[in-house]
Design a protein around this nucleic acid. Structure first.
Lengths: 199, 199
DNA sequence: TCATAAAACATACAGTCTGCATGTATTGGC
DNA sequence: GCCAATACATGCAGACTGTATGTTTTATGA
C-alpha cells in the first residue's frame, strides 16, 4: 500500500509536492494574508520541508505567483462556462460580469487576486497573469461588442482595464458587506449608459 | 545657533521627529515598497533611532497608516482646489476627475494609496481614510449631481466606490505607461453615458 | 544489473528584521 | 531646584528568509 509513495517517477513526485505546496500556501495566504504567512507554516501544512519549497520555487513570491496564476485561471474558466459564445455581445458582457462576481465570491479570491497579488507581485506581473486568463474573456467580449456596434469605438485596453477595475471593486465591496444589489445596479447602469451612447 | 535643538518644548520635539519619520518613511516606501523597507533604514534616513519610531508609532503598519493618511489628505486638497463649489455639478465631476489623475501623477502616490495601502492596511482601514479625504469630495459631487437630476438616482455608496475604482485603475495604468488620453476618453464616455441616461 | 549521474528533497547556518524591555536624557510642573 | 513625565536610545529575544551543503530517491547507459 505504500507502493504509491515508495515507487513513483520523478514527475509524479514533483507534481505531488508542488500541488501540496500550492494547496497549503493558498489556504494560509487566504486565512492570514501573504505577509503574515511564514514558509515554515506552509511546509508544515503541506507535509514537506523548506528544502522542497525552495527546490520548486525560487522564493516565496514565486509561490504566490503560482497560486495567483492558478486562481486567475479558475475564475476565467467559470466565466467562460457561464457566458458561452452563443450569447449576443451585450448579453455576453452582462452575463460574464455576473459570473465574475459569483466567481469572486469564492473565499479568498479577492485577497489573492485584488489585494496581495497586485501589492506583492506588482501591477505589471498581475496584468500579465490576468491577460492570460480572466481579463482576456472581458477584452474579447468588449472587442466583439465594439465591432458589432453595440459599444462605441473606445480604446480597448483602457476600456477593459477600467471596467475590470469596477468589477474588482464591486467584488471587494460586496465581500466587505456592501449591498450586492446596489453594486450590480450601478454596473448595469454604467454598461447601459455606454451601450445607449453607441446608438 | 544650536538653541533651536537644545531648547525646545516637548511638542516641538515630538512634532519634529514625527515629521522626520514620516518624510523618511514616505521616501523609502515609495522607492522600494513597504515590505522591502526596513525600520533601521527609515530611522537612519530620518536621523533618529528605532526607539523614537516605536515611541511615536505602535508598529510599522501604524507608520504606513500615518503616511497614507497624510497622502490622501494632500490629494483631497488638490482636488478641492481644482474643482470649487462654484462649478456646475457635471463640470465639478469632470474637473475633479482630471484633478485626481493629475494629483495621482505625483510619484509614489499610486503605490501608497492603491497598492501597499490596501494590501497592508486592508480595505476597511483604507475606506475609513479615503472617506475622510479624497473619496469624500467625489461622494459629495455625486450626491449633488443626483439631486440636481444630472445623474440618475443610483445607490450612492456603490456608485462612489466604483467610479473611484475606475479612476484608481486609470491612474495606475497611466503611471505604468498607458495612454493618458485613452483612459481619459473612456472615463469621459462612461460619465457621459450616465449623464445622458438621466434625461 | 550495477555504477554513476541527476533529480528531489532534508538539514544547518548566516544574516536580518521586528517588537519589546530596559536604560538614559530632556522637559514640565510645583 | 526637585520630582514626575515625556522623549528618546540601546540591547535583546524570537522568528524569518534564502542559501549552502548533505542525503535519499530515481534515471541512465554500459
Amino acid at each position: 500500500m505504500q507502493e504509491n509513495r515508495s515507487r513513483r517517477s520523478n514527475d509524479q513526485r514533483s507534481e505531488a509536492t508542488r500541488a501540496s505546496l500550492l494547496k497549503a500556501a493558498r489556504k494560509l495566504f487566504v486565512e492570514k494574508s501573504y505577509a503574515e504567512t511564514a514558509t515554515p507554516e506552509i511546509v508544515a501544512e503541506a507535509g514537506v520541508t523548506r528544502g522542497a519549497l525552495y527546490h520548486h520555487f525560487v522564493d516565496k513570491r514565486a509561490l504566490l505567483a503560482a497560486v495567483v496564476e492558478r486562481e486567475s485561471q479558475s475564475v476565467a474558466g467559470e466565466i467562460e462556462r457561464a457566458a458561452p459564445e452563443s450569447l449576443s455581445p451585450r448579453d455576453a458582457l452582462v452575463t460574464g460580469g455576473e459570473a465574475f462576481l459569483d466567481a469572486m465570491n469564492s473565499p479568498g479570491r479577492t485577497r489573492l487576486l485584488l489585494l496581495d497579488g497586485p501589492s506583492v507581485l506588482g501591477r505589471s506581473i498581475m496584468d500579465d497573469i490576468e491577460t492570460r486568463h480572466a481579463n482576456r474573456t472581458l477584452k474579447d467580449g468588449l472587442a466583439t461588442a465594439i465591432e458589432a456596434g453595440v459599444l462605441p469605438p473606445l480604446p480597448l485596453e483602457a476600456l477593459t482595464a477600467q471596467l475590470a477595475a469596477m468589477y474588482d471593486r464591486a467584488a471587494l465591496a460586496i465581500e466587505a458587506g456592501g449591498s450586492a444589489d446596489d453594486h450590480r445596479a450601478v454596473l448595469k447602469a454604467i454598461i447601459d449608459g455606454l451601450v445607449s451612447r453607441s446608438c
